[in-house]
């Protein structure tokens, strides 16, 4: 028996919004430590890794490890049926071929349940090595989303250059060129507004704007985003989900042909 309950459906809606543009389907691996999903996008350029810890749920029970392959478009249809303040419970029997989403209104007067067929997905799991990154940038997630949106107008690719002075995002194309420089903030009223840079070595890497823009769909999950970079390895874009876990996106760099 698997059962996981969240007080608010909003968080699950936000998580789905953060992955459904990149993935058509995904396998949710459930164990007593929580729920994990790892999947590459269709073109195998990026990797999504979602971790939701069992202790972050209002209730969590997982008697036997189960892997639930879900069509994310179908899951989105079901989650549309939940109000933001509904409690959501995800339930599945051991070896089941369906999963049930149950939504309860705050006053418990409306209870709905939606059963969805599970899929058998051939999933390739990738081992992600522990890495000490040359540069780790933390910045407001809305600022990062804004920069990705703005620079995507100029080119398909964006250059991210990080030094101890700051981080620079650049794009150039037929229209012209764009540069956005962010310096480390010296003092801020709110922690969420801070830009911080931990640098061992300066790094310059090129990435496809459309993937970065897809990652920023996770912005509603967290006020801050963390970018981890080293030369010639994938960028990690991480959004922490308060008290529940995180979503990490890995993006392969573009290299000189």
């Amino acid at each position: 028996m698997f059962e996981a309950r969240l007080i608010s459906a909003t968080i699950l809606k936000k998580i789905l919004d953060a992955i459904k543009d990149l993935l058509n389907e995904g396998t949710f691996d459930c164990s007593d430590s929580g729920i994990q999903l790892q999947a590459m996008d269709n073109s195998h350029v990026s990797l999504v890794s979602l971790t939701l810890r069992s202790d972050g749920f209002d209730k969590f029970r997982c008697d036997r490890n189960i892997s639930m392959g879900m069509n994310l478009g179908s899951m989105a249809k079901i989650l549309k049926c939940a109000n933001n303040d509904d409690t959501v419970t995800i339930k599945a029997q051991d070896n089941a071929d369906t999963v049930t989403f149950m939504f309860e209104s705050p006053n418990h007067e409306k209870v709905s349940d939606y059963e969805m067929k599970l899929m058998n997905l051939d999933q390739e799991h990738l081992g992600i090595p522990e890495t000490d990154y040359s540069c780790v940038v933390r910045m407001p997630s809305m600022e990062f989303a804004r920069i990705c949106r703005d620079l995507a107008q100029f080119s398909e690719s964006m250059l991210i250059c990080c030094t101890k002075e700051g981080v620079k995002f650049s794009a150039s194309g037929d229209v012209g060129s764009a540069n956005v420089k962010l310096a480390q903030t010296s003092s801020v009223d709110k922690e969420e507004e801070a830009v911080s840079i931990e640098m061992q070595e300066p790094v310059t890497l090129t990435f496809a704007c459309r993937y970065l823009n897809a990652f920023t769909k996770a912005s509603p999950l967290s006020g801050q985003v963390q970018l981890s970079m080293s030369a010639d390895v994938p960028l990690v874009v991480e959004y922490r989900i308060q008290d529940l876990g995180h979503i990490r996106y890995y993006l392969a760099p573009k290299i000189e042909d």
Binding site: H125, L126, G127, Y250, A252, I255
Partner: peptide, 14 residues
């Protein structure tokens, strides 16, 4: 020109 690499070329299958 630039070439897009794939994520599988950096992380190995487990």
């Amino acid at each position: 020109s630039e070439k897009q690499t794939t994520i599988g070329s950096y992380f190995s299958k487990v």
